[in-house]
Simulated scan of single mutants.
Amino acid sequence: MTQRQDIHELQDATAWDSKDHKLGLVGQVHRDKDTGRLAWITVSLGLLETREHFIPLAGARVEGTNVHVAYDHDTIKDSPHIDIEPEMGLSPDDEAKLSRYYGL
């Protein structure tokens, strides 16, 4: 994914996993606090799913209104639960926990 992408281009995009399975609509888009680069999106997996799962944008590609991430559904489904207020963003501890989980 290039940093030319804008947050508004990713919000409400459709997310697809690494095996081209539809994940759902992108909910939130977060920047890395140190670099300001787009770093994470959230997606609720399934119709009845209320929890938003954080997915790294590292290795992702955007094609029109679709974002293809570099991780499969099961990896994303089992990611650590991070509960934040959207306007607050990820804390350094939360970002470190997610980065360790995804091997970044």
Rank of each mutant, 00 (worst) to 15 (best):
Q3R: 07
G36H: 11
I7G: 03
R100K: 15
G36N: 11
D20H: 11
D74R: 11
L48Q: 10
D93A: 15
D72L: 02
W16T: 01
P56Q: 00
A58P: 02
I82K: 08
W16S: 00
G89L: 03
A39W: 01
I55F: 07
V62T: 11
D34K: 14
Y101D: 06
L38A: 03
V67G: 04
G59F: 06
K77S: 10
V62C: 09
Q3W: 09
V29N: 03
G64V: 03
D72T: 01
G64S: 08
Y71N: 00
A96C: 10
D78I: 02
D93M: 07
E63D: 13
S79Q: 02
F54S: 04
L47H: 09
R51G: 06
G46A: 09
R51F: 04
L90Q: 05
L90W: 05
H53R: 10
G89E: 03
D32F: 05
E85W: 13
P56F: 00
S44C: 14
I41K: 00
H53T: 05
E9M: 15
L38C: 08
V69E: 01
D20I: 04
D83Y: 10
K97M: 11
G46F: 06
D34N: 12
E85K: 12
T50G: 13
K19T: 12
W40P: 00
F54N: 02
L57P: 05
E87D: 10
M88P: 00
G46R: 07
H81F: 10
M1N: 09
E85N: 14
L25T: 15
D17F: 00
D12M: 13
V26M: 03
L104R: 13
S99V: 01
L47P: 10
Y102Q: 01
P92S: 06
S44I: 05
E52M: 07
L48F: 10
D32Y: 02
K19Q: 14
T2L: 12
S79K: 01
D12E: 14
D32S: 08
D6H: 11
R31T: 11
D93N: 12
A15L: 08
W40H: 01
R100V: 14
E85D: 10
